[in-house]
Write a protein that binds this DNA or RNA. Structure first.
Lengths: 195, 195
DNA sequence: CGTCTATTTGAATGTACTCAAAAGCGGTGG
DNA sequence: CCACCGCTTTTGAGTACATTCAAATAGACG
């Protein structure tokens, strides 16, 4: 059950068996049904969440009611509304499972306790934060530099799995275009039919 | 000389006089002339940099040679190419002073030494990274949700100082529009002349 | 003071969106 | 397990937002 998350942690810090036990004891498992929510905008964000198996989308809703996806999290990724979680303020983002999903939750109190008891974790969460930062920066750069068409081909190349696994409209909401326009782009890139 | 950076650190952690001394001893001051560079894309990014006084822009150059500004850093802000600095890989971003600027540099080796000697700093840099993350996320959301016009009015409201201090073309490069289009938006928002 | 760069203005164009409707596909219940 | 209903994707026409290119004007730095 905890092997995936321990492997994830092991990518950055090395734990003794005792430390691993302290860690896993602080986690809360949850099963989320397809279309179920892990966090709803407006409510507190009590957890930093590790996706063991499944797929979660993190999205913001704008004034017109449109949804904009900031991130997908599949097997082995972390997700939450960072701002809300770390500052204990109400969430502005919603996290929803796109498939039946199995997660492990860590509260901020437990995170802090963990950093106290096993200071190595301070480093782990710093690295986690930095990785998230780098991903976001690459996305912002992509939006500043590239057209929707190029962003889409890059997405297909960089995330072939997600491209299969996730509905078009969600990919559109992630790329920052309308589903209709994404459909056009797909058509355009589709090789002409041989008669 | 170090009072500004110590005040900045004090926002998140409390240092003893000795710890403050350890910290400041690891910093390297530099004066950068207007239009001088602190870091050039393609080269290593040896420093995490604190701006004591002045203004720095962090930008990426695209395939067509256009510059896209990811961040401005004025008095009291940190800047670097995060990815390059923490992973010791060549920079993809360039940092350029927009005015005569006074900075303090910290190398990654010194940062790590500092975290060893004064573990509180581990927390400080985690918070710094999280703050950066939150700023980036807000920007990405703005790009996904808002038109250039709204992004611009928000920018004026949220950064009135920068709006005065920085050339239009740089604000355009930050907002993700052409200078010509920003000029149009300004004209549009300018109250009609009373005859 | 002169030159060089930044900003403004305008016309033509392209990229992406809106609205509407048809076609396709998939999950759920029978 | 199949069929239906509802949601997703496709298609198309018209439109809006933003860009490109070119040229004139304004402004700043040495």
């Amino acid at each position: 059950m905890y092997s995936d998350i321990l492997a994830n942690v092991a990518r950055h810090i090395t734990l003794t068996p005792d430390e691993a036990t302290i860690f896993t004891a602080l986690l809360t498992p949850q099963q989320v049904a397809r279309h179920g929510t892990l966090l709803v905008a407006g409510e507190p964000a009590p957890y930093l969440t590790f996706v063991v198996r499944g797929c979660v989308r993190t999205y913001a809703t704008d004034a017109q009611g449109k949804e904009h996806i900031l991130a997908f999290a599949t097997d082995g990724w972390w997700c939450t509304d960072n701002t809300a979680f770390f500052n204990r303020v109400p969430a502005t983002l919603t996290l929803q499972a796109l498939e039946a999903t199995e997660v492990l939750h860590l509260t901020l109190a437990h995170l802090e306790q963990l950093c106290q008891q096993v200071p190595k974790f301070e480093r782990f969460f710093r690295v986690l934060s930095q990785n998230g930062y780098q991903l976001l920066q690459r996305r912002l750069e992509a939006h500043l530099k590239l057209t929707a068409e190029v962003r889409f081909t890059n997405f297909q190349r960089q995330h072939p799995r997600l491209n299969q696994r996730v509905a078009q409209k969600h990919i559109a909401a992630y790329l920052g275009v309308t589903p209709e326009f994404l459909s056009l782009l797909r058509k355009k890139n589709r090789p002409a039919r041989i008669s």
